[in-house]
Amino acid sequence: MFEKLFGKKASSTVAKDRLRLVLIHDRANCSPEILELIKTDIINVISKYMEIDRQGLEIQITQTKSNSGNKSVPALYANIPIKSLKNSYK
């Protein structure tokens, strides 16, 4: 509603969004530094098998519903754009 009126996000919405993100990291006990290390490792492993867009690689921790029960659990989400599959492993 506020966004529509002023064409700008209400600060309470900004606060909520920022807080959500901060808490996901707090709860997972995972710092941005560790996430960066994971990212580098993923790039190294996958690069062995296929050519990927390193710049376009996105990795983040989000919340998802667990398979058992309705509890929300953290999940590692990675979006890895592939440029081309390497032929040598065919």
């Binding site: 506020f2 600060s11 309470s12 909520k16 959500r20």
Partner: peptide, 16 residues
């Protein structure tokens, strides 16, 4: 402030 959208509401806090 909650009415103006400049403060998180009770339900926002409880949600989180």
């Amino acid at each position: 402030m909650v009415k103006r959208g400049e403060m998180m509401s009770i339900s926002d806090v409880v949600d989180i």
